[in-house]
Design a protein around this nucleic acid. Structure first.
Length: 561
DNA sequence: ACTTCCGAGCTT
DNA sequence: CCTAAAGCTCGGAAGT
């Protein structure tokens, strides 16, 4: 059963329930004020648990969450439209409701309405959505939903596309709930750390004491001329005056130089980075009430990985993990999927031998055994480079010869990624396991690689561009399938975690659950059973690949691993 | 003064 | 950096 919710042009809310297979008449409730609407949604969820249909979960769900309503299942029309359009090779088209409705009616879609900029965001952004006059938003949504279901049935693997849309939609619920709950963050611990490393807090725009001292030492080391260590060109020029020529002022370049300024510069860099990216300003702006609340962007990366907006939520430096602490009487359960991508490749490609290797918790050790008949540190490292080169298209150093050996031992897995690379080089699109589709290369790319090269330089550039795109599609099939997997895992976890436990962080292959002391010990077991179900849902019950999780129950994130 | 670009570094 | 790629954010510098 689907229940469609939307806000009409006059600001009132509508709730349209569609019984399965027309078993009963549709049930429309219109003209609801916001408070009645929230109550109605909560009641229907409690009594009937439908699949809720949103134009956009990201825009519509946060208001429900802050009113204390949590929904079990949903379908996000906008996210589904994006997945379907790119699957169909039409991803340049607008994804908004009006555009989707036009397409469903066989009309030319109007351009997407610009994102609204109200200071008071509405529950559902449908005002100004460009729907024809007199068309009810929820009626339009019902039409689009039915059309999307037809399009799913026409996909190469309808059941996989259905799962992908459900998981992507559930991810959007998770993202909104994570933003609302927030990651536990101890501002006092963070402040103490900053003070210890940088000196006492100073007003914004000023250098803390420690940085002032280091800048002074750097200037002295260059003979007393004032140097701004924040300016890379200034650093390059300063070394040039000392007779040292460097191409850039990057840390790894500086490390090669023998000069008294280098250690001070490196120390300055590290601390200045902490100060500018995660200093007191960051703390003021992003942490409140003991929580860090970033905005999460589901599917913000073409591969289906999430991005974040504000606060650099996916770039939290490891040194600050000590600030992530469970509340008193609570624990953090930190879980990451060990060596996820090679396991995904084993499952994707159906490579039996790689699946056997993936039966081990330490996949790279077993791989080393299979490739070199030994598992010492060096062999394990080389096995790892071989595998990562296969997935990323690396060619530096020993990579090419190691890859050749890997291909010999695991032809099915290696040819899977090499076929994806070949498709990319020809400008074709590739798909993840559940059907997320890579974007088409740009017109500039086609022009460069498609034409007959006039000279060698152009031909070289064309070949380079083709190889680069091949590397992208090679990686896409693995990274995007890993994102499929983690989306389904998130959806499953969200349903199964004890009610008092909260998902508070997600980073590509890692989750953090904040749970009361009494329930924390059972969370790792729940996670393991969710992983098992995810493997069956995504790859089928007979999938031989294991996906072990590293799970730790800790007080602070820094203690995980 | 404002916008846009670049270098740098952090995570996976 | 030493295996790739993408995304976010900052500060400086150049352009308007």
């Amino acid at each position: 059963m689907h229940t469609i919710v939307g806000q009409e042009g006059d600001g009132s809310y509508s709730v349209l329930t569609l019984p399965p297979e027309n078993a009963a008449p549709r049930e429309m409730v219109q003209g609801l004020a916001e408070r009645e609407f929230v109550t109605r949604v909560a009641t229907v969820e409690r009594e009937r648990r439908p699949r809720w249909v949103f134009a956009s979960v990201e825009r519509g769900y946060p208001a429900l969450v802050s009113a204390g309503v949590r929904l079990s299942r949903c379908h996000d029309l906008g996210l589904a439209e994006g997945l379907l359009l790119s699957h169909e090779g039409r991803d340049g088209q607008p994804k908004g409701l009006a555009a989707a409705l036009a397409r469903a009616s066989g009309l030319e879609p109007p351009p997407d309405a610009p994102a609204h900029t109200d200071d008071q965001p509405a529950l559902f952004e449908t005002q100004g959505s460009g729907l024809p006059q007199g068309v009810s938003v929820v009626d339009a949504m019902a039409t689009v939903l039915a059309e999307q279901e037809r399009r799913v049935r026409r996909a190469g693997h309808p059941e996989r596309m259905r799962l992908l849309i459900a998981a992507e939609s559930a991810s959007a619920l998770v993202a909104a709930e994570m933003s609302a709950d927030g990651l536990p963050w101890r501002a006092d611990v963070h402040d103490a750390l900053l003070t210890e490393l940088l000196g006492p807090r100073v007003p914004a725009g000023q250098r803390p004491k420690k940085l002032v001292e280091l800048a002074g030492r750097i200037s002295e080391a260059f003979g007393g001329k004032p140097i701004n260590p924040d300016s890379p060109p200034t650093i390059v020029r300063a070394f040039s005056r000392e007779g040292i020529s460097i191409r850039s002022a990057r840390a790894h370049v500086l490390r090669e130089i023998d000069h008294p300024a280098v250690p001070w510069l490196l120390e300055y860099r590290e601390l200045a980075r902490l100060h500018s990216a995660n200093g007191w300003n960051w703390l003021d702006e992003w942490v409140g009430d003991g929580r860090f609340r970033p905005a999460w962007v589901v599917g913000g990366v073409v591969s289906g990985r999430w991005a974040s907006q504000g606060g650099g939520a996916l770039q939290i430096p490891k040194t600050l993990r000590v600030c992530v602490r469970a509340d008193p009487g609570w624990k953090l359960v930190v879980a990451d999927a060990a060596q996820l991508e090679p396991r995904i490749l084993a499952a994707l490609s159906g490579d039996r031998k790689l699946a056997e290797v993936a039966a081990s918790t330490d996949l790279y050790a077993r791989l080393s055994e299979a490739m070199f008949s030994k598992v010492d540190h060096e062999s394990r490292d080389r096995a790892k480079i071989a595998m990562l080169s296969a997935m990323y298209g690396g060619t530096a150093g020993e990579a090419a010869s190691l890859l050749a050996l890997l291909r010999q031992r695991f032809p099915a897995a290696v040819s899977y990624v090499e076929r994806a690379a070949g498709a990319g080089e020809r400008g074709e699109r590739v798909r993840s396991w559940l059907g997320r589709t890579s974007p088409a290369p740009s017109a500039a790319w086609r022009a460069l690689t498609g034409g007959l090269a006039e000279d060698e330089a152009t031909e070289g550039r064309a070949r380079q561009a083709a190889r680069n795109w091949g590397r992208f599609t090679r990686n896409f099939v693995v990274q995007a399938s890993a994102a499929d997997f983690t989306a389904v895992l998130l959806a499953t976890l969200r349903q199964r975690l004890p009610a008092s436990a909260q998902l508070v962080f997600f980073q590509h292959d890692e989750v953090i659950v904040h749970a009361p002391d009494e329930v924390a010990p059972e969370v790792p077991t729940v996670i393991d059973s969710c992983v098992a179900d995810t493997v069956s849902l995504v790859f089928g019950a007979s999938c031989p690949v294991r996906f072990p999780m590293h799970t730790a129950v800790v007080d602070t994130y820094a203690d995980a691993k």
